[in-house]
Design a protein around this nucleic acid. Structure first.
Lengths: 225, 225
DNA sequence: GTGACTTTGTGCATCGGTTCACAAAAGGAT
DNA sequence: ATCCTTTTGTGAACCGATGCACAAAGTCAC
């Protein structure tokens, strides 16, 4: 069923996909420092994972290593980039120019990974027309038109929670199928649309949970009740 | 081994801990709208999860529901808050006052969940002394002294990648055991320290991967090579 | 070419998490 | 008091991910 000349297998595990960007980051650092080849052991250490896991992850993309030697850094960078779709240019729009939206627009990590901020929107007439990261803030009324005109395929939602679902519905209607949501709400979308969410306060709450445990639990000493 | 009067089990699965803040958010919304009791079905829908999963998650905290009725909203809010350690006040410090650090300092979601921004640091003399979200930006030299003086137990790293490990080492040496890292580097810490990382560009890369799949894969039509 | 050595790629056991499906428990009606 | 309805809490099957451990495949020295 699997021919040797077509090693790449459709259907890469989600857990693997989530780690590929990590490997890519480590590899970029190595390429910059002039390292030509790397073993799974070293790359795994740089990415903060177990080496067996790294090898299994890479094996899902194909056999890009050489036994006895390791992986060629440049080649692996290319293969992972291609698999993640980073060899093409992605037009991203940011909706909501509050503190977070501004930070995201100026975040260098996006641009350096092949993501191009193509538009920035807000509903507040006060900020429409402002210049953010070299872009003119456009009014939310222009949302659909600009998305289509500039070929935006990924939208970042940095709106207040109350506005998120409405904006989401509009961008979905405009044909967007990938959304990164920073608003603290559960978005309802068709199955064909991918939503990833980042909730900053959730991360802190998880830390607080563990911190509390270390400190001695909520009722650890007290045995009453 | 498990007595009925002591239902809470130490050792809540990580996956469950990560969802508790989600339930909490949904419950807060319901409490605001005056809803007194809620079924696992409804709460699960509001949190965007499967109802069986929700029930199993809650069962790890204890038997706080009433069969045939559901869960009392206020009571469940209290139980989850306590389990997560949100009934106490957590002093948080933010290191790095770039765009992201500023956005985090002003982010309302922290304060409303029992987290208090107790200090903000930067290395740049240009911004030291500035006022961010009502706080005076302090010089990084003061890091250890201020952390100890104000009882900071959670640190948010929003520094450039190059500075993150050094700052991390210093806050760990100062006794901090919970770190939320926004810098795109793998931090090395002792086992006793918890690090959670948020990498904004990773989320976009995962979206790009799926978007590419939808559009027809990297070499889906082309069979050459 | 042969043998020693290195490192990949993967079969297999294991583990944690998810989902199903149902018995147990509570409430309300008659 | 008994029956019927509702909804929880959980045993058990299932599924995906992890990590061990090793054979296969390559390099290098001579």
């Amino acid at each position: 069923m699997k021919s040797p000349s077509q090693p790449r297998d459709r259907g890469i595990p989600e857990a693997t996909v989530a780690r590929l960007p990590l490997y890519l980051r480590a590899l970029h650092g190595m390429a910059e420092r002039g390292i030509a080849t790397v073993s799974s052991e070293d790359l795994a250490a740089a990415a903060g994972v177990n080496s067996a896991k790294l090898r299994k992850d890479l094996s899902h993309l194909g056999s890009y290593g050489t036994r006895g030697v390791g992986y060629e850094v440049e080649y692996l960078v290319y293969q992972i980039s291609r698999e993640l779709g980073l060899t093409q240019d992605w037009a991203v729009a940011i909706v909501g120019v509050g503190n977070l939206g501004r930070a995201l627009a100026n975040y260098g990590g996006f641009v350096s990974r092949g993501f191009r901020i193509a538009a920035v929107f807000d509903a507040d007439p006060e900020v429409v027309g402002d210049d953010i990261a070299g872009l003119n803030v456009e009014h939310i009324d222009e949302l659909e038109a600009v998305i289509k005109r500039r070929g935006v395929s990924i939208v970042v939602l940095a709106t207040p929670a109350a506005a998120a679902q409405e904006v989401c519905d509009r961008v979905v209607a405009a044909g967007v199928t990938s959304i990164l949501n920073f608003a603290p709400v559960v978005l309802t979308v068709p199955d064909s649309v991918d939503v990833r969410k980042v909730d900053l306060s959730i991360e802190l709450q998880i830390l607080a949970f563990h911190e509390q445990r270390k400190a001695g639990g909520p009722l650890m000493a007290v045995d009453s009740q």
